[in-house]
Amino acid sequence: MNPRPFTRRGLLATTAAVPVAALTACNGVQGGADAAENDFPTRAVDFTVPFDAGGSSDLLSRAACLAAEEPLGQSIALTNKPGANGAVGLKELLSGDADGYSIALAVKSLFAITPLVVDDPDAVSIDDFRIIATLTNEAYVLVVHADSPYQSLEDLVAAPSLNYGTAGVGTGGQLSLALLFGLAGTEATDVPFDGGAPAVTALLGQEIDAVSGSLAETMPQIEAGALRPLTVFSEERSPFLADVPTAAESGYEVVVDQRRFVVAPGEVSDTVAGALVLAFEQARQDPDYQAFLQDNFMDVWEVEDIEARNHLSEAAQQYAQNVADAGLTLGDGS
């Protein structure tokens, strides 16, 4: 990429260190940034996408990194290391150097939903990471086929029996519908597919009655009139589907969303983290990046490290509580 004057980089890093040091008191205190850290970054930064190429996480990472390269003053090299809803790539990030040259994308579902399904003694914890930048908040939407008799959420939950499709075990879509039908007392069978696209395909073919999926997976079909949205599971109505009520408005307290953010290993120094934070803060203002979010139906989530951390741990507790209250076990088909 285009090289930038040496001085500007140094300046960027030092100015960034101040606010960040203040807000991340929970991280290990470093004994003053040395010269090498002040120069950060002097070479390309590796960005791990712990998901397959072509998916939402991958596309978002590409758009965000592209916008962050200029403020960072270095290129960002993207690598896909998929596996276990991101756990493989993030564990590899933690096993590497915490020098800031290795960062990654992370998703909320790995920290909040996966533990409800997979019993992994070595599971990654959000405390192992430093949150560099929060990026998106993506709603799950409940859709039915356009020819379906169900016109509203009330119609759907009153159905005598239902089959619903999800993108797989331990996805937000599965959790949202399991909780909804659990609360409503609807007799509904969960049919997990191998990803969101096969689930939407099965709904288009009317093999199943409903799907809860991300907007990226469902909006093109909603806009084409092939699928009908009944409700969204976000805290507030989605700006992309302003006419569609939230589940809470209909009396079902089910709030499930997906959030994506950039992380570095927890031991990364404040100076280095500051440079990264600043670069991604500027990236979020980039018009091309914002256009990308708009095109891909992603709502912004732009908060600071501590708030993001609280949100993630609260969500994890909330989901676990909800699932326990409803007497559900994700994956048992209830």
Partner: peptide, 15 residues
């Protein structure tokens, strides 16, 4: 799936 992503990055939604 990757081609799908390539189109999305171009601002075109395959559908």
């Amino acid at each position: 799936a990757v081609l799908f992503g390539a189109l999305m990055l171009q601002g075109i939604t395959p559908g």
